[in-house]
């Protein structure tokens, strides 16, 4: 009995003393934090992807609270919805931004771009590209080792086994830009998602001269400039033997894709063309062969 009593008394005393100490320590080292930071953080996706340019979602929330306007601050993973919520909390306005998506600008699948040698090394694009041009002759194209897959926090990008190229999952991609940064070949670009998710873009980064590019990859942009002439909106520019479609100017008319002799211009999520055009397309591919 005495033992139990002694134990109870001594332990409770110890507890009280420690609690008092803890209380004073907590008082002394208290750090004031704007309560709005927590509120803002509530709205963030919490993925800590770093796509906003701040260290994690907490860092983003701090930046939002500190900032005077929300211009130039954007959470790509959360999108407009999150930004509007944050704006409400902070009593500011956030501009609507066109939703974006990561786009892989290389279409040189296994069959379209022949392997010229065997790469034997760790599965890392960074290592392979620091060593040499990769196992195809194209020194601009996708290496297919999947650094982008590794870095994606949303599981939104994966290597397609058949083609050996990364594919972006439109549902999951938040356009955080992690893959854009990691890609040693700068193949991935963030583009506007487009109306009804429709996009037209040049799926090639090869800066070689036309003939050379054509030799190493059958779907390379050869810099012929036909698309420029076809474009009614002056959305296409040609630099270093490579065409680029400005997504802000592009009106998704698809005239360029029709003209492209190698099929380097991809059109995504469009309904199939009318028959007449389909025949024409077939003809051009036959001529290619």
């Amino acid at each position: 009995m005495a033992i139990i009593l002694n134990t109870l008394i001594s332990l409770s005393l110890l507890g009280v003393v420690l609690a008092i100490i803890l209380y004073f320590v907590a008082q002394k080292f208290k750090v004031y934090e704007d309560p709005r930071i927590d509120e803002v953080e509530e709205f963030t996706p919490g993925a800590n992807c770093g796509g906003c340019g701040y260290p994690g979602c907490r860092g983003f929330a701090e930046a939002c609270v500190k900032a005077e306007t929300l211009d130039g601050i954007f959470c790509p993973a959360g999108g407009n919805e999150v930004m509007q919520n944050i704006a409400k909390v902070l009593g500011m306005t956030a501009a609507e931004k066109e939703p974006q998506i990561a786009v892989v600008r290389c279409n040189g699948s296994h069959e379209k771009r022949e392997k010229t040698n065997i790469y034997d090394g760790p599965k890392s694009c960074a290592i392979e590209s620091s060593l040499y041009t990769g196992d195809t002759a194209c020194s601009y194209g996708c290496l297919g080792q999947g650094d982008c897959v590794e870095v994606c926090l949303f599981d939104a990008i994966y290597i397609d086994e058949e083609s050996g190229l990364p594919l972006v999952d439109e549902e999951k991609c938040t356009a955080c830009g992690a893959c854009v940064k990691i890609c040693p070949r700068s193949i991935i670009e963030l583009r506007d998602k487009g109306k009804k998710n429709r996009r037209v873009y040049v799926s090639c980064m090869n800066k070689d001269k036309g003939a050379e590019a054509r030799k190493i990859c059958s779907v390379a942009c050869i810099g012929c400039g036909k698309c420029i002439k076809a474009c009614p909106f002056e959305a296409i520019t040609l630099n270093n033997f490579i065409a680029y479609i400005d997504y802000e100017k592009c009106k998704l008319c698809r005239k360029c894709a029709q003209e492209c002799p190698t099929g380097a211009i991809l059109e995504i999520n469009f309904p199939p063309r009318k028959e007449k055009e389909a025949i024409k397309e077939q003809e051009t591919t036959e001529v290619d062969k």
Partner: peptide, 8 residues
């Protein structure tokens, strides 16, 4: 011309 690393 491509050198031993393949880059131009």
């Amino acid at each position: 011309v491509s050198d031993s690393t393949g880059y131009k």
